[in-house]
């Protein structure tokens, strides 16, 4: 008993330390965003909202937020659609070279982002598509679709493969079976994939920096402000970005986890 208790203690301690290392920089940024001192140092100055006021007054930051939100929503929709189609193809069909197809479909996130950004810039500038909002969208769709595919694929793996055939058997056409069976079944995964790809796109810096041109996204503008001088504004922006992303990721997790695990144990979706 003694031994198992000490193991338990060790595991708890370990988890606390991991969380501390992961979240302390974010927490620091959060704390300093309300600190009146210009330089992030201890002891803290007094509480202030002036850095937030500064970003609210900065039209560049507003523009960046507008671009980021526009891009991430569009990317979320397109990559979820592509991811769904890829996962469904994998679920439904057997064909020559399927493993290669799957490997290629999952490849983009494993490519170093700088390489990906460079390659995207090289391609897009050659075909006259760089420096626009749609350049960021195209690049981010490439990056995000595999995540959407993985999520939808996990959900489809939980589905009884006879379910779709059962719908055909009862008189549903292929499209009807898709809309009445496959779509409702994968719906939680679709929403979850949408949130997650949106979050990935919203946070992504390297590729966006290469291809964005004058249409800066939030991560790009953060680096620009930082390059100019040490400015506590970035703490404020960083906190906002973190809140947006973590909200999306948490929504994605909650929807996917509760819906799919519940249905696996046999509860209503």
């Amino acid at each position: 008993m003694k031994e198992s208790q000490s193991i338990l203690l060790f595991i708890r301690l370990y988890i606390i330390i991991v969380f501390f290392f992961v979240f302390s920089p974010i927490l620091a940024s959060f704390v300093f965003s309300f600190n009146s001192d210009r330089f992030p140092s201890l002891p803290l100055g007094h509480f202030t909202l002036k850095w937030y006021e500064m970003i609210f007054d900065d039209p560049d930051v507003w523009d960046a937020f507008a671009v980021s939100i526009m891009v991430s929503i569009t990317v979320g929709i397109i990559s979820t659609f592509i991811g769904f189609c890829t996962a469904y193809t994998d679920f439904r069909y057997r064909f020559f070279g399927k493993n290669i197809y799957l490997a290629l479909a999952l490849l983009p996130p494993t490519i170093p982002l700088v390489i990906m950004g460079l390659a995207m810039l090289a391609l897009l500038s050659r075909i006259g598509m760089s420096g626009e909002i749609h350049s960021i969208i195209v690049s981010h769709v490439v990056l995000c679709s595999p995540f959407a595919m993985a999520i939808v694929r996990m959900r489809l793996a939980q589905m009884d493969p006879q379910l779709e055939a059962a719908a055909w058997n009862l008189g549903a056409s292929q499209w009807r079976a898709m809309s009445t069976i496959i779509f409702p079944f994968t719906f939680p995964a679709i929403i979850s994939a949408f949130c997650l790809t949106m979050a990935v796109s919203f946070d992504e810096f390297a590729v966006a920096w290469f291809v964005s041109g004058l249409n800066k996204t939030v991560p790009v503008i953060i680096l620009e402000i930082l390059q100019g001088n040490v400015d506590p504004q970035i703490n404020a922006i960083g906190t906002l970005v973190f809140i947006i992303s973590i909200t999306l990721v948490v929504i994605a997790q909650i929807i996917f986890m509760t819906k799919s695990t519940k249905s696996a144990h046999g509860f209503r979706i």
């Binding site: 009884d160 006879q162 379910l163 055939a165 059962a166 719908a167 069976i181 409702p184 079944f185 249905s263 046999g266 209503r268 979706i269």
Partner: peptide, 8 residues
Amino acid sequence: QSLALFPF
């Protein structure tokens, strides 16, 4: 065989 009832 699996009955394939629609779970939702």
